[in-house]
C-alpha cells in the first residue's frame, strides 16, 4: 500500500466513525430532547419524565461518552495505520 493510498483509506475510516458518532450526537439531543420530547415524556424513570431528562441530563452524559468513544476508536485507528508516533 503506497503512502497516498494509506492516507485515503485512513481518512475514509475516520469520516465513517465521525458520521456514525454525529448521528448519535443528534439523536440524544435534538431527537430525544426536542423532537420526540413529548412522546418520551409519557415514560418515567424515578421522578423524571424521560424527554425532560434527556434534555437536561441524559444528552450531556451521552455527549461525554461519545467523545471518549471517539478517542478510543481513533487511537486504535492511528495505531492500525502507524500514525500513532
Amino acid at each position: 500500500m503506497s503512502n497516498k493510498e494509506k492516507q485515503i483509506k485512513y481518512w475514509k475510516e475516520n469520516i465513517r466513525y465521525v458520521l456514525i458518532l454525529l448521528f448519535f450526537w443528534f439523536i440524544v439531543s435534538f431527537g430525544a430532547g426536542i423532537i420526540f420530547k413529548d412522546f418520551l415524556n409519557s415514560f418515567k424513570i424515578g421522578g423524571f419524565k424521560l424527554g425532560f431528562w434527556f434534555a437536561q441530563q441524559g444528552s450531556i452524559f451521552l455527549f461525554v461518552a461519545i467523545i471518549f468513544i471517539y478517542v478510543y476508536l481513533m487511537n486504535k485507528l492511528d495505531k492500525k495505520y502507524g500514525y500513532d508516533k
Partner: peptide, 13 residues
C-alpha cells in the same frame, strides 16, 4: 444545557 455542552462533540470530532 445542551447548546453549551454539545458543541464540545463538534470540537472534538
Amino acid at each position: 444545557l445542551m447548546g453549551w455542552t454539545g458543541g464540545y462533540v463538534l470540537l472534538a470530532l
